[in-house]
Structures are given as C-alpha cells and as structure tokens.
C-alpha cells in the first residue's frame, strides 16, 4: 500500500515543460530523497504534493497525485485540509515573527483551537519530537527570531509536526545550516520516520545516502531512476545516475 502515488505527471511554467511524465510511489514510514542538479524539477515536483505551486503564475499540470487514496487536485479537496495532512519544511528557516509558543501552535490556532491546556500539551509534545524542548522550555514566550538558525529550523519542523500530518515534505532543510545543526536535523529526520513519511529534496549526496530509504534521481525534468538508496549509490542502472552520484556532473 502506498501513501503517495504520482501518475503521469507533466508540469509547465508557461511554455517551459519542467516535469515530464513522472510516475512514482512512496511507501508509508519511509524517507524518500529527491536528488538531481539544479533546475531538474525535483523541488517543483515536491511542491506539487501540497499544492504550493498553485500561487505561481503560469503553472499548469497534467496527471494525478493520490495521497492516502484521494486525488489532491480534485475540486472537492480543500487545499487547507490537504496541507494539514501534508506538512512542509522550507529551505531557509522561516519562523513567524511571533513567540516560540505561537509558532508551534500556529497550525492549530488558525483552525480555531482555543483550549489552552491542549495547546500547551501539543506545543510540548511537538517541541520534544523536534528535539528542541530542552533548549527552549524556559523561553516559550520569547521571539522565535532570537533563536539560532539550526534552532529555528527545528522550530519549523515542530510547527509542521504540531498538526500531525502523515507526510512531511522537506525542501533542502539543512542547506543553510552549519555542519553541527545539519547533523542534528538529520538525526531528527531519522527519528521522525517512525511516525511520518518523509520526502526530502537535497543537493547533498552524502545526506541522501545517510538518511534515505529510497532515492529518486531527476534530470532535466525526467525521473531517470528511482530505487532503494543503497542501489542508487552503489549499482545504479543508468549511466547518468552513476555519473551524478559519483560527482562527475551536477
């Protein structure tokens, strides 16, 4: 059983054909890495899973994406509900200019949750899951912007966890962080696998190799190869994959 299924996806920015007939399935409780050179379409593809491309002028798509049995581009689907089911962590940490607490429970307060006790519980649970609780438990009322970059990114992960999504999309979540913060984020992602399905876009080959179960290699808008990470990195079937993972281009 797949948690996510993409069938015959084509995508365009105006006349620019950025994704070409892509088919891909993702199993629950796995980490899937999308790799490939810049401009290969991997981020565009990732952002289709929670319809973040809806706001981009001239974006158009063909094909269907089925998440937990529902076609997400169906007219009956409310995009606000879809994004509760499919959370997202961005490339640059982007906490709101609010307190740490308000950041974590944002997804609940916009859905009308007012119960103070429940919000407190969820904030603590989410921050613990994001391994940030011990660092911020005494400063929940302080501005999130005062945190370090790595802490901010973990806060953004906690914020995504608070609404209990089933899938978390991560668009190069560690690319703006130092090596120590990156290691913490990777460790965190591995822990999250038990409860969530994670799709991560990364430019860092070692990172993909360290944390993912499956890896998809994109090149010029096409899905060249999709297999278990160990196979992609040791015995890929395509020459292009081989050249890319060994660093000969990209």
């Amino acid at each position: 059983m797949h948690i996510l299924e993409a069938n015959g996806i084509n995508a365009y920015y105006g006349t620019n054909h950025v994704l070409k007939n892509i088919n891909l399935q993702i199993k629950p409780h796995t980490i899937t890495a999308f790799i490939g050179p810049s401009g290969c379409g991997k981020s565009t593809f990732l952002r289709m899973f929670n319809r973040m491309n809806d706001y981009i002028d001239g974006f158009r798509k063909e094909g269907e994406i089925i998440i937990e049995g529902n076609e997400i581009y169906n007219k009956q689907v409310r995009v606000e509900d879809l994004r509760k089911q499919v959370g997202m962590v961005f490339q640059k940490p982007n906490p709101f200019p609010k307190t740490i607490f308000e950041n974590v429970v944002y997804g609940l307060t916009i859905r009308g949750e007012k119960d103070k006790k429940k919000l407190n519980e969820i904030a603590e649970r989410s921050l613990r899951q994001a391994v940030l609780w011990d660092e911020v438990k005494d400063s929940l009322k302080k501005s999130a912007l005062a945190l370090s970059g790595g802490q901010q990114q973990r806060l953004c992960i906690a914020r995504a966890l608070a609404v209990e999504p089933s899938i978390i999309l991560m668009d190069e979540p560690a690319s703006s962080l130092d090596p120590i913060s990156t290691a913490k984020i990777e460790e965190l992602i591995l822990q999250l696998k038990e409860k969530y399905s994670i799709v991560i876009v990364t430019h860092n080959m070692q990172q993909a190799g360290r944390i993912s179960d499956n890896t998809a290699f994109f090149y010029m808008g096409e899905l060249i190869e999709y297999d278990e990470t160990s196979i992609i990195f040791t015995s890929p079937k395509h020459d292009k994959t081989q050249s890319y993972v060994t660093g000969r281009f990209g």
């Binding site: 606000e80 959370g87 640059k92 982007n94 906490p95 944002y106 997804g107 916009i110 914020r159």
Partner: peptide, 27 residues
C-alpha cells in the same frame, strides 16, 4: 514582509486572509 514567511503560513494550511491577518499585517 518576506515572501518566505507568507509561504510558511500557506504551508501550514492558512487561508490568504488568515495569512494577511496573522502574519503580514502584524509584521
């Protein structure tokens, strides 16, 4: 107001008006 925090709000499932009211206007 940076686009990135508006995106964060949309990504959490906020509507356009919620994003304006909660994020853009206070900032």
């Amino acid at each position: 107001v940076p686009k990135s925090i508006k995106e964060a709000s949309f990504g959490m499932g906020a509507t356009k008006w919620q994003t304006i009211r909660q994020i853009t206007l206070p900032a």
